[in-house]
């Protein structure tokens, strides 16, 4: 049985000394508690599992609670309550605790690397402008800042030549983790080529457009028009590189062109350093 060390666990108890919960009520209650961010266990056994963590044990007890370590188990009789009332009861118990589900939650959208396919080429690191990727001390790619990732943007997976980057909540395969066909590998390779056709790389295209836009803006000095022009350029970029699927809001929230240039350069340098470190580690290993 799962026992979280980070926060309390809710146990729906239907063992000895408790009447079973009505099925539709149980489903509704479980869904509500899970959406609240709480792990749940359904226990039908006669005894509760011992755990070092706090357990909020809910059931139709009728005044008789099962035997358990009272220092970790807190019993609540939920007979006659609806699911909303039970969730609110659990929240009262959790109030003031360090339960992680009390903290602000975010849609967990971030890249997951399939290390069975990754060749550590660092293309993802040099592509991402938001410092999502980093490298370990021995030069291996890793996802370092998950929460920096832009929700619904799978662009880095599109530039990965090995189809090794997954977004489990993405709508379609193979990015969602579905098995990879040879067609997928060929298609992903073509997408990298499309990026190259845009003038070396996607950031080079942004820089060119930035230069043109800046020459016009210097004459006009109209912030609103500058913003519109930037949006227009980004939309054109999106149309040209549609397969990369960068959401419009992500494009619109990109920093200025100069900042993009600078960030892209920094990312490239970090990738180069990681590759150098990787080569050094490999040489050291082969020398042993």
């Amino acid at each position: 049985m799962i026992a979280t060390k980070t926060g309390p666990r809710v146990v729906l108890y239907e063992g000895a000394d408790a009447s079973p919960l009505e099925n539709s009520f149980r489903v509704e209650l479980m869904a509500k508690l899970l959406e609240r961010g709480l792990p749940i266990s359904l226990a039908r056994g006669n005894a509760l599992n011992s755990t070092e963590n706090k357990q909020i044990v809910l059931g139709n007890f009728g005044g008789r609670f099962p035997e358990a370590d009272s220092s970790t188990a807190e019993f609540r009789d939920i007979a006659g309550l609806d699911a909303v009332a039970v969730v609110s009861l659990v929240e009262d118990v959790l109030a003031g605790t360090n339960d992680p589900s009390n903290t602000k939650r975010w849609k967990p959208w971030f890249p997951v690397i399939d290390f069975g396919r990754c060749t550590n080429c660092m293309q993802c690191l040099s592509f991402c402008l938001f410092d999502v990727y980093g490298a370990t001390s021995d030069g291996k790619i890793q996802v370092q800042n998950e929460s920096n990732c832009k929700t619904d943007c799978p662009a880095c997976s599109r530039v990965c030549p090995e189809v090794a980057i997954m977004f489990p909540k993405y709508k379609a395969g193979p990015i969602n983790g579905d098995e990879i066909s040879t067609d997928d590998v060929r298609r992903e390779g073509m997408k990298v080529d499309i990026s190259a056709l845009l003038g070396g790389d996607i950031y080079a295209m942004l820089r060119d457009r930035s230069a043109k836009a800046q020459s016009r803006f210097s004459k006009e000095r109209d912030d609103e028009r500058a913003l519109k022009e930037r949006q227009r350029c980004l939309n054109k970029l999106k149309a040209a590189a549609g397969d990369i699927e960068i959401p419009t809001e992500v494009l619109a929230s990109l920093p200025s062109m100069d900042q993009i240039q600078s960030k892209a350069e920094q990312a490239r340098q970090r990738a180069a350093q990681a590759l150098a470190q990787q080569a050094k580690s490999t040489n050291a290993d082969s020398g042993q």
């Binding site: 899970l34 959406e35 709480l38 792990p39 226990a43 589900s101 967990p108 959208w109 971030f110």
Partner: peptide, 13 residues
């Protein structure tokens, strides 16, 4: 008996 977690992605992150 079974265990439920809210979201494996969130837990991984």
């Amino acid at each position: 008996d079974f265990d439920c977690v809210p979201d494996l992605c969130e837990m991984s992150a």
